[in-house]
């Protein structure tokens, strides 16, 4: 222990500053009866380190209050403003979107899954009520206005999944039926590819890790191409066969490489489908039983060559189940 003598030059909230007679400055603990200009004798045990902030404990207190408020706000917001995700609707027109909804069918998030979806969402302003039906309607209209939805391209891959199937009051099939109702009431005509799966939450995670919407992921996984892309499959595959798992980006315009064996499988399934009697306006095709997904085609009564004139063509169409 060493003793020093210093003159008190400054008294702060947490400490005082003294100047020693050899011109050195020290910070010492605050004690009773300190006065500016008084000479004090202090020991090394009275020295204090530089406080973490110039504003001392006052700032520390403010920071603690701010942190507490932030944590509280985050908790409240997570309960109020960010309701828990209940179900996911994957909509692929070609903009590939994944819409997350809460239990009351309010949209809590829309994830763009490709660049077209980025462009679409850049132009889209979501309404205040965030109702799923309204959002889907608006997205379809906007897709048409932006030229994504045309007479040549009117195929929609629709997939639904419950985030927590065990604790959900409704099923993903019910949700899909609701959405089909909404879409069919629009003025446009679509050929649908409907995707459902039993392992909903795990496949959602898989799709997310692949960076694909659930619908696209299912198509890639099950080697199933939607109606508009059938021709591409029939083209002779000159490239070497590549495992599908290694190349899941079906959303790219490039033709996917299909192993010869699997290509045949798709064609066979089509032939079988063509033999089945299909009710008018409901060209429903079921693929060979996929291991994880059930992929169903649901054609419009007639593919409309005019986007604006398709209204009513698919009225009364089946729900695909």
């Amino acid at each position: 222990m060493r003793a020093s003598k210093g003159k008190i030059m400054e008294i702060l909230e947490s400490h005082a500053v003294v100047m020693t007679s050899d011109g050195h400055f020290n910070r010492i603990k605050r004690k009773d009866s300190m006065r500016i200009g008084a000479d004090v004798i202090y020991t090394s045990s009275d020295l204090v380190e530089k406080p973490s902030s110039k504003k001392g404990w006052v700032f520390g207190l403010k920071a603690q209050v701010a942190v507490a408020m932030f944590v509280l706000l985050t908790l409240v917001m997570s309960q109020i403003a960010m309701p828990a995700a209940y179900a996911v609707v994957s909509l692929d027109i070609n903009p590939s979107l994944q819409i997350t909804v809460d239990e009351s069918r309010k949209v809590v998030g829309i994830d763009p899954m490709n660049t077209e979806a980025d462009e679409l969402l850049e132009a889209y302003v979501i309404g205040e009520d965030k109702d799923l039906h309204a959002v889907i309607n608006e997205l379809i209209k906007l897709s048409n206005a932006m030229g994504y939805l045309t007479s040549e391209n009117h195929n929609v891959i629709l997939a639904t999944a419950m985030v927590d199937r065990k604790n959900s009051k409704s099923s993903s099939d019910e949700l899909m039926t609701e959405i089909l109702d909404v879409i069919e009431k629009t003025e446009y005509t679509f050929d649908f590819t409907l995707v459902s799966t039993v392992r909903e939450s795990s496949e959602l995670k898989n799709a997310k890790s692949e960076g694909l919407s659930l619908g696209r992921y299912a198509m890639a996984k099950e080697n199933f191409l939607p109606p508009g892309q059938e021709k591409k499959i029939e083209e002779p595959a000159e490239t070497e066969p590549v495992a599908l798992d290694a190349e899941p980006q079906i959303e790219e315009e490039e033709k996917p490489t299909i192993p010869p064996g699997q290509e045949k499988k798709v064609e066979e399934s089509k032939n079988i489908d063509n033999e089945k009697p299909v009710p008018p306006g409901q060209a429903i095709k079921e693929q060979n039983t996929p291991s994880k997904f059930v992929i169903t085609e649901k054609k419009a009564k007639q593919s409309n060559d005019n986007n604006g004139n398709g209204k009513g063509n698919n009225k009364g169409g089946g729900k695909g189940n």
């Binding site: 003793a3 008084a38 000479d39 004090v40 004798i41 020991t43 045990s45 009275d46």
Partner: peptide, 14 residues
């Protein structure tokens, strides 16, 4: 100095 200061609660001064 340390002991006296700890009793009085003040620094030793003139």
């Amino acid at each position: 100095i340390y002991t006296v200061s700890s009793v009085t609660g003040r620094y030793i001064s003139t």
